[in-house]
Design a protein around this nucleic acid. Sequence first.
DNA 1: GAGAAGATTATCT
DNA 2: GATAATCTTCTCC
Length: 200
Amino acid sequence: MPGLADLLSGPVLEVAPRLLGAVLRLDSPEGSVAVRLTEVEAYDGGGDPGSHAFAGRTPRNEVMFGPPGHLYVYFTYGMHHCCNVVCGSEGTASAVLLRAGEVFEGSETARVRRSAARDRDLARGPARLCRSLGIDLGRNGHHLETPPLTLSPAMRAHPSREISSGPRVGLRRAPDRAWRFWLTGDPTVSVYRPAHNLGR
DNA sequence: GAGAAGATTATCT
DNA sequence: GATAATCTTCTCC
């Protein structure tokens, strides 16, 4: 059975689609929640204007420059957390944003954190995914082979699905790069919205 | 120190 | 479809 290092080895554009179907799990006293990833986005360490690391190393993005296998969590819009898996070798800042997934274990616990959500919506979107799992800035830099928060390749067989790709969501910069990957037709994939450029 | 933008979401019309 | 909520980070003075 391949480990995390195998899962994350190679160029980020190869790693990202490989993460579809992988399982992110967080065990806590409140209960365990496990998510099967259905949608991700790739962010390249070198020359990707859409990446938080594009302008160089800062305190916020420091984790992305570290070794692969760690979680990069950031806080945005004054209220939301989003999480990435750091990949690529140490010194490069490639990462994969976890945009959506299917909560297949611990939906009761997830529902406590996300009131009034239908099952399919529990982790349908990057901030929703973090909230269902209970991930916040305290998990920034966490290594994903260390309990209670782990990432592992698909643990169970799931119907083979086609993988689709398209432009990344919500970016004003580099909207042309089709670096978003998802399981074709999966109901938990978030809906595409272009960057909101109006009203500013 | 000020100002703007942001890898979003829930809610209203 | 439009907008409010809400605050950190980064970019210039």
